[in-house]
């Protein structure tokens, strides 16, 4: 599998259960064997995969044993809580009043927000990726993203979090003392006051006070946080970043993959490759033995082949299409390289 010469970051996307993690790992192995220095960031490897890679999913970067070759392979899972703390620290170092920045940790809404942000994993994943790409230590940084519906939420993560730190919005709430209140009341128009009143009616004053304090405290952070978020965003649309879409040999998943690829490409991301996993080459094997289950699969897959033709011609126009096959149950170190070697282009 070939990537563009300027490519530094490879992001795998696709729906759940299509073998994305294993495929990403196999390609990382392959690239390391070809002589590159590769880091693969995986979200949640199965025990079998972790064992096959000889790696402990503990949120730290580890050097992995590879087969013979000049390159080297590193792997890491993500400790989302840690990464989120790192993100805040990195941003607060850039603020002039570091103490002020720390005050926000006590805000109830902020606590909830940071729990949610680190649990949703979108932004922390991106920030972790960004840090490793920025470090320029590796020839390739390969990322295996959370599943599909989340692919979009992953890509929108910077935008979503940036909204929080936009000046326009936080200034609405930045009413901390009584003297200021009267001043701000003059500035705010009637409509916005009405909104605040309704908000108080719906949520209660305790909630509103936390909200005010949240925006008040976030003031000093705003710019450094926003800059960092934009840097992450830029990484996603950079010409040095390539996206690889993985799908299964399944008609419904194939349709979802087409929708996803159209969306991703029209949004300006550099999606270049499609890998169709679990293409059943065993259909060509001849056997006298008949079993209902096997015959049902045979019939289903034959019709899947037929129905996929139209979508395939779409994919061929827009992407490099590859086929692959890997079984989940018995995976060994050497298998990952075998998987890499059997991924081949179809035209």
């Amino acid at each position: 599998m070939k990537f563009q010469p300027q490519t530094k970051t490879i992001i795998f996307i696709g729906t759940g259960g299509v073998g994305k993690t294993t495929t990403a790992a196999a390609i990382a192995y392959g690239k390391a064997m070809e002589g590159y220095k590769v880091l693969v960031i995986t979200i949640d490897p199965s025990k079998r995969l972790a064992q096959a890679m000889n790696f402990t999913p503990n949120g730290k970067v580890q050097k992995l044993p590879t087969l013979k070759g000049k390159g080297s392979l590193y792997a890491s899972t993500i400790n989302h809580t840690q990464v989120f703390t790192d993100f805040l620290e990195k941003a607060s170092q850039k603020t002039e009043v570091e103490k002020d920045a720390k005050a926000i940790y006590k805000n109830k809404l902020f606590k909830q927000l940071s729990t949610k942000l680190s649990q949703s994993q979108d932004f922390t994943t991106l920030f972790y990726l960004y840090n490793h790409v920025e470090s320029k230590v590796y020839d390739y940084v390969i990322l295996d993203t959370p599943p599909a519906q989340h692919t979009l939420s992953f890509l929108n993560a910077p935008e979503k979090i940036a909204v929080l730190f936009s000046d326009e919005i936080s200034s609405w709430f930045r009413i901390s003392t009584d003297e200021e209140t009267s001043l701000i009341k003059k500035v705010l128009n009637q409509g916005s006051l009405k909104v605040l009143n309704v908000l108080q009616l719906l949520t209660g004053s305790e909630f509103l006070n936390e909200l005010k304090s949240f925006f008040d405290r976030i003031q000093t952070w705003q710019k450094p946080l926003r800059d960092l978020i934009y840097d992450c965003q830029r990484l996603l649309v950079s010409p040095k970043t390539e996206f690889v879409l993985v799908t299964n040999f399944d008609q419904h998943k194939f349709i979802l993959a087409k929708e996803l690829s159209q969306r991703i490409q029209s949004d300006g991301y550099n999606l270049t490759h499609l890998i169709i996993n679990m293409v059943p080459d065993w259909l060509d094997e001849k056997t006298e033995y008949k079993h209902e289950t096997i015959e049902s699969f045979r019939k289903l897959y034959q019709s899947t082949f037929k129905n996929m033709t139209r979508q395939l011609s779409y994919f061929h126009k827009h992407l490099n299409v590859y086929k692959s096959y890997n079984l989940s149950q018995n995976l060994s170190h050497a298998d990952l390289f075998k998987i890499y070697n059997q991924i081949h282009r179809i035209d």
Partner: peptide, 18 residues
Amino acid sequence: KLFLNNAISKALINVAPG
């Protein structure tokens, strides 16, 4: 509608994730 179709409330929904 007035309450929800404005930047404040949208920010609120973002900030208070629950």
